[in-house]
Design a protein around this nucleic acid. Sequence first.
DNA 1: TGTACATCAGTGAACGCGCGTTCACTGATGTAC
DNA 2: TGTACATCAGTGAACGCGCGTTCACTGATGTAC
Lengths: 216, 216
Amino acid sequence: MSDQPRRRGYHHGNLREALIEATIDLIEEKGPQGFTIAEAAKRAGVSAAAPYRHFAGRDDLIAEVARCGFVLFAELMEFAYDDGGPSALSAFLATGRAYLAFAEKHPGYYMAMFESGVPLNATPELARASERATAILTLAAARLSEHLPAERRPPASMFAAHIWAMSHGVVELFARSTPGSRGPFPADQLLETGIGIYLRGLGLIPPDTGPEPEKI
Amino acid sequence: MSDQPRRRGYHHGNLREALIEATIDLIEEKGPQGFTIAEAAKRAGVSAAAPYRHFAGRDDLIAEVARCGFVLFAELMEFAYDDGGPSALSAFLATGRAYLAFAEKHPGYYMAMFESGVPLNATPELARASERATAILTLAAARLSEHLPAERRPPASMFAAHIWAMSHGVVELFARSTPGSRGPFPADQLLETGIGIYLRGLGLIPPDTGPEPEKI
DNA sequence: TGTACATCAGTGAACGCGCGTTCACTGATGTAC
DNA sequence: TGTACATCAGTGAACGCGCGTTCACTGATGTAC
């Protein structure tokens, strides 16, 4: 938050972390391609050459930010999932809410992860972090779909992919407060209702009462 | 496709369109931020200053490409929708397929529209084009949901937003052939099944036969 | 049909800028003895 | 406890580059008469 460069002396003492922080803020403000190493260094109160003591270059720094983002993301999802309690359904819905909350509270991370152009396998560490996050969502989906008879149970990874796709789509299209926002619905409501309808389609939520749909 | 600059003389004759074409190709190859006016001009066989006779600047050119993209997009969606025939349901599913087909066949347009950072209301013409595209999807959703009893019918714009979000999410996360693609499912199958489950949740597709889900 | 002229769509040189990165350096830190 | 020295994390100047944009210009086109 504090952009003022404050240094204790010749050595920064914490430059690596300070650069990561600065990168997050910069990406948040100007988007992934508006980010420059030079400005991150300036914000950390350090010369433009200093970052190269800690990162191989621009892409390496962004990849590291993305990795940290996935780590935090996974932690939040895991915390929200709460080991499947109090019920598989509520735990699942909580992870969905956590997804959106993460994107809204940490747009810098989110952009580094999904909009920076850094491929998810740019570094082995990044690949591992993103896989771990995927695994949590997939686990939540798997646990929830155990309540479904096996013969009409989609693969858990497909289930998870559907939810991920809808969540990501809502974030990208409707959660940004950029001018030109579409539609009158707040993003969290949109995602909540969307997931609700999807789960009803799977048979995980009882259908609404009401007359049968006419034949179409 | 032909990158060779071929000119008939001092005047290009068709520079505006040639620049748009070059921009599409460049964005497709290098992403929206890899695009430069200088290179678009070179591809069109023209000096770097020439584009300024036709566009106010970089952003204006990208915005125009996005606008063209929305126009084509709307046309394809409209064609796929086919005025709601042969049935509201099949017409709706066709528009979903058209969405994905557009993203796959015209990635340059798609990126200019959704990933370039150009806000959808950057110019009045762009805003109009994107609204028209939205309107078509919303119309398809409205027509389809007429088959639902009014009291459990979500607003058509919300319905449309759900579908748009899932489609966009599938495109962004699973349709790119970039290294690091996730999941073993082809994008079209993912979208098809996802929309199917969603529509079942709305009651627009009869539920699968099978035992009731246990209480969860 | 021919000529004069306005208009238009290009050129090419130049600008200022900021970026990513390298390099030889230097000041601070910590460890061996 | 004090000193010598290796190591580390910074500096600042410099580089080459390519970009967006401007400007005075010039060649081609089309229209009025």
